[in-house]
Simulated scan of single mutants.
Amino acid sequence: MTAKKNAKIAADLITEKALAALANCNSLRSMHDTSKKLITEHQLGLAFDPKRNNSFEMPTGLLICNMAESIRTALDADAVQGFASAYLAGDYVEPMGVVAEGGKLRVVAGFARYAGLMMAIASGADIKRVWVTQVEGGRAKELVRQLVSNQQVQASPLELAAAYRELIEVHGFSVGDLATAIHRKEAHIRKMLSLDSVAPEVKEMVAKGQASVTAVLTADKHCKATGQDTVVHMRDQLTKAQRNGSAKITSKSVGAPAALYGRKDLDVAAPVLVQLADQLEKAIPFMAAAPGSVKVELTLDGSAMNLQDLTQALANLRAAFLTAQVGSALIADVG
């Protein structure tokens, strides 16, 4: 009978009685309880039906934690210390995600928070109770919760790849399902999963921060297309980077070609090049009529230009031209 009555009431109904009752509420709990009562009395529509999450303040003595269940291979020491400081100061810390099992609370999300809590207690903090939220749905939900946790310290690419792979291969997620669940783009997920295709030695470079995921995947694709060994190539690149004083492979650290000339080079050299072009244009008819050597006269006024800048500008332009020729030859060889 109640369900039928509620169905006839507009979802956005709010009567004068409801407005007056809610105006006297000064806490979320009172608003929750009052709204529930008003809906039962048909003074509020179901659009105002409040929901409570599954957060609870529970005894710390009931917490258990198995770090092997974390997607992380190692906790960030600074993050753990930060959580410990927050617990010691009595500051707000986002609740850990737990599963109730056999009278214990198994931590499934918030491993750095748990480690920080234990550190704070070991430092003398008297923390008898802590806020936790219940995670339901098994291992798949636990992994997703770890991946989207607001205070989760950013996991490494390899850790993300392993978690994504488990959700897809073990728990039946598609790439699209996973992207929706963790609020990331499909391209990001596919990129992390592609790490599985590179050699372990190259993955280790990513783990050590010696190369980015993009750099590794780009190099691997290029090496496979040209028949090169990716491991050898990446080791050579790392050696170049280290020789240039960098611990990471980047276009700059390995001496990748940069722009050899800029606007200033063109501005400095342009007057001379235009003068040369004018002289050549005048000489073309003579060369056409009587092929042979033609003398071109070029007059430079040292007082009107900085000859040192001109020398450098011309050198830069020449180097750019030669580099372009070498690049064209390489492309022709590959083709």
Rank of each mutant, 00 (worst) to 15 (best):
H183A: 13
M31R: 04
G97D: 02
F111S: 05
R113F: 04
K221Q: 13
A23D: 15
Q210T: 06
V130L: 07
T218G: 06
T214G: 08
A256D: 13
L307F: 12
M58C: 13
Q325D: 12
V268D: 00
D33C: 06
Y261Q: 06
S35F: 03
T180K: 14
L62P: 01
A329V: 14
A18K: 04
A18T: 06
A120V: 09
D301F: 05
L273E: 08
E41L: 15
K295S: 09
A120M: 11
K264I: 13
A68I: 14
K4S: 14
G176I: 11
M192T: 00
S27W: 01
D78H: 10
A112N: 11
V130A: 09
G172K: 02
I189W: 02
A21S: 14
A125P: 00
A289P: 00
A20H: 05
D49F: 02
D309V: 01
K282H: 01
A332G: 11
G335H: 04
A68M: 15
K51V: 09
A23G: 08
G90N: 11
E159S: 11
N53G: 10
V98W: 01
M305G: 04
L46W: 04
A256C: 12
G45V: 10
L88C: 10
F286I: 12
T133L: 14
Q210C: 11
S85K: 07
E186I: 00
T180D: 10
K185D: 13
L276P: 03
R139D: 14
S328H: 02
A3L: 13
D229E: 14
A109E: 08
G138H: 10
S197M: 08
V108A: 05
G102Y: 02
A315I: 01
Q279T: 09
R129H: 12
R318P: 00
M205E: 03
A86Y: 04
A269Y: 00
Y92A: 12
K36R: 10
V170K: 09
M1G: 04
K264Y: 11
L314Y: 04
A215W: 03
M234S: 06
Q325T: 08
S303L: 13
